[in-house]
Design a protein around this nucleic acid. Structure first.
Length: 435
RNA sequence: GUGACUGUAGCUCAGUUGGUUAGAGCACGUGGUUGUGGUCCACGGGGUCGGGGGUUCGAGUCCCCUCAGUCACCCCA
């Protein structure tokens, strides 16, 4: 192939596009019923914006370029910096909390793999100006609401939750100083890929001796079901320092989503900017990369020159969730738009009248189609109507002289004579509301 | 960006130790013409075997490079 699409991108043929739209529609629907309002920003930003949060190292992961004035620009790799900029700009006039969602396409100059492409769509929801654990739980609930909407249940996915403060307390108790805390988080994030000796070696400079390092490792590998904080307290021998997690735990129960959640102190999300709750959603067998990730980032808006403003949110890419839904057989088969009416003329005379009838029905809002083939073979034309999954076939025959035609219900096979002027109301009244 | 594996029609794949005009199923198109439906029959379009170069009398089959996909690393905002 001479003209290839760029590495890591996708073409959306009608079937693919129908799925993408279906997914985005579900994201939008769920966002709205959870009280979020849609926003968007530019698809490219000034390169500097991305350095604010992620540092100079981010540049190699970006598609960036200069405009004719020499300004450094970059395609957005995520939406959060844009969001932070937008919020910082109007912070004083925004309601508290402000609940926003968006579904931007984002580009990252990474090496593509299964579940990871160079362009993807990412659902983001954020709640700003509220630091209550209710908000943390509501963010997680919104994700669960979406999963349920798509037919997933708590046996398909695990929401792994940790809390920066809780982990900080544990590390502190094991002897890690505040100045080494960030390094300790990084080590925690990488521990699964390290040999025990290697881990111990890396832990030493953090102020952890062999025994503490071993305990650190052990503690972070343990998982606790939501509601089993007592077990965690017991195992960690910390009794008073996990109020944050306890408050979240209570809310997760109140929202009825505790069965989806477990505490896993190994979840760090690699990000320096998370300040409290952090969570990741994984396929239950752990086979794939994370479906979604998020948490609380109370300092971010300030970092972008805004006021001090607490925030919590998450992001979910279209790629991994689509793989999961495909794996579970949860992608609906028929997503193409269904015609309301398929017009079938039985004669040349009737065919001559077709455009007028078609125009009328379309102007009344009906999805109306006809065949471009020259055949008058009724069987073949109905077959075409059937393969398009049309709800009704409108057969234009000799009754046309009296402005009447036969309307055939393609589901039941029943057919009745109707006046052309009645077709639209007839079809609308019979049409069952479905997505 | 580094390494490993893979690459035949839109999709799923055949293609014998290198040997003549590269096949099947599905999908797609036309026809089976006075007729009521995803069936059936016939015919047809579509591949420079990812691309380029090399070895050879001859390469889809062997070698090199390149591109893309998959996996691991990096990273995962």
């Amino acid at each position: 192939m001479k003209l290839q699409k760029p590495k890591g991108t996708r073409d959306f043929y009608p079937e693919d596009m129908a799925w993408r739209q279906h997914l985005c529609d579900a994201w939008r629907k769920v966002s709205i019923r959870n009280g979020f309002e849609q926003v968007d920003g530019p698809i490219f930003e000034r390169l500097d914006l991305y350095k604010v949060k992620s540092g100079e190292g981010i540049v190699s992961e970006l598609f960036h370029f200069n405009d004719r004035g020499g300004r450094g620009l970059a395609l957005r790799p995520e939406f959060t910096p844009t969001l932070a900029r937008m919020v910082a700009d109007r912070a004083s006039s925004l309601p508290r909390p402000t609940k926003w969602f968006c579904i931007p396409n984002c580009c990252r100059a990474e090496n593509p793999q299964r579940g990871r492409l160079r362009e993807f769509w990412q659902w983001n929801i954020d709640m700003l100006g509220i630091d209550s654990p209710v908000a943390d739980a509501e963010a997680i609930f919104t994700a669960v609401d979406f999963f349920r909407e798509m037919g997933l249940n708590s046996s398909h996915l695990r929401i792994k939750i940790s809390h920066r403060q809780t982990v900080r307390h544990i590390l502190s108790k094991l002897g890690v100083g505040d100045d080494r805390m960030l390094a300790a988080f990084e080590l925690l994030d990488r521990r699964d890929k390290m040999e025990p000796e290697e881990f111990a070696e890396a832990a030493a400079p953090l102020g952890l001796d062999a025994a503490s390092a071993g305990r650190f490792d052990e503690v972070c590998r343990m998982k606790y079901a939501a509601g089993r904080l007592d077990a965690m307290r017991e195992a960690l021998s910390i009794h008073e320092q996990i109020e944050d997690l306890a408050a979240l735990d209570e809310q997760l129960h109140a929202f009825g989503i505790a069965d989806w959640c477990e505490y896993d102190l190994g979840v760090v999300r690699g990000l320096a900017y998370y300040t409290g709750t952090v969570f990741e959603v994984h396929e239950a067998t752990g086979a794939m990369r994370a479906v979604a990730g998020g948490g609380r980032y109370d300092n971010l808006i300030e970092l972008f020159d805004g006021p001090s403003m607490p925030a919590v949110g998450f992001g979910m890419g279209d790629v991994v969730i689509s793989l999961v839904l495909f794996d579970k057989g949860l992608i609906p088969e028929h997503l193409a738009a269904r015609p309301d009416v398929f017009i079938v003329p039985v004669s040349d005379a009737a065919a001559a009248r077709l455009p007028g009838v078609l125009a009328d029905l379309r102007s009344r809002g009906l999805h109306t189609r006809f065949s471009y083939r020259s055949t008058r073979n009724l069987g073949k034309l109905l077959k075409e109507a059937s393969s398009l999954r049309a709800r009704y076939a409108l057969i234009l025959d000799d009754r046309l002289a009296e402005a009447r035609a036969h309307l055939k219900d393609m589901e039941s096979g029943e057919q009745e004579e109707v006046m052309l002027t009645e077709v639209a109301t007839r079809v609308n009244s019979h049409t069952v509301v479905e997505s």
